[in-house]
Amino acid sequence: MADKRTIEIEVLRYNPEKDAAPHFQTFKVPFSDDTSVLQGLQYIKDHLDGSLTFRWSCRMAICGSCGKMVNGRPELSCHTFLRDYYPGPLRIEPLNHFPVVRDLVIDQTDFLKKLESIKPYIIPREAKDVKDGEYLQTPGQMHKYYQYSQCINCLLCYAACPQYGLKPDFTGPAALALLHRYNNDSRDRGWEERAELLNAEEGVWGCTLVGYCSEVCPKHVDPARAINQNKVNSTMDYFGVLKLLMPKGGA
């Protein structure tokens, strides 16, 4: 039997060509038990207002495109269901702390620059020719970084981090968690190249352990853990202990 329920969705609207500041617009959206918040937005775009702008792609919580503030909490809108907010109203805003380009679309440039700056790729411990075969790794060695490699760059953690909102120079949770991921890889010896960024005021020391980043992470990466483990590493580096323990740049 068709579900007759509807929910009021308040969406933040901002048109840079017309509006000085954003405002909210309310839509009535029919839904059933399996309608996600993203599908609610798609309903608005298809049937109520075609000008509503938002990002999405995979619809299965893996691409990290559809992050929004849902009732003030950063969520992947494909991974959040309208039934949980019934009878509403439900308020959808762009991710906090990022400049709004239009409606629910944010400017990710700052994050992308930061992601690039942490060198998110393996800087090999030893240069090997292809004919010498693959780099070997034990399950134990993989376990050390696997959790942090699950990050999908959805930026929910940045929207959850008041430090990033207050001090936009802060490298931020996802980039620092990925820095930790590469530093912890047994095939990588890039920690010295990443050290300046990690040790900086804008690096791990910009974090005051609010912890909300780990709370909202849809992939359970736990960036707060990565950052705070690296406060220890940063201190050891300051006193020269890290070089003493890992003269060859061990992971």
């Binding site: 901002y14 840079p16 509006d19 500041a21 954003p22 003030g72 909490r73 906090n96 400049p99 709004v100 380009v101 239009r102 400017d107 008041p162 909102g165 207050l166 909300y212």
Partner: peptide
């Protein structure tokens, strides 16, 4: 593109 940056005032009382 022109963007809008939302204010942080009262951030800690919102959640």
């Amino acid at each position: 593109a022109k963007t809008y940056v939302r204010p942080m005032q009262g951030w800690w009382r919102r959640n």
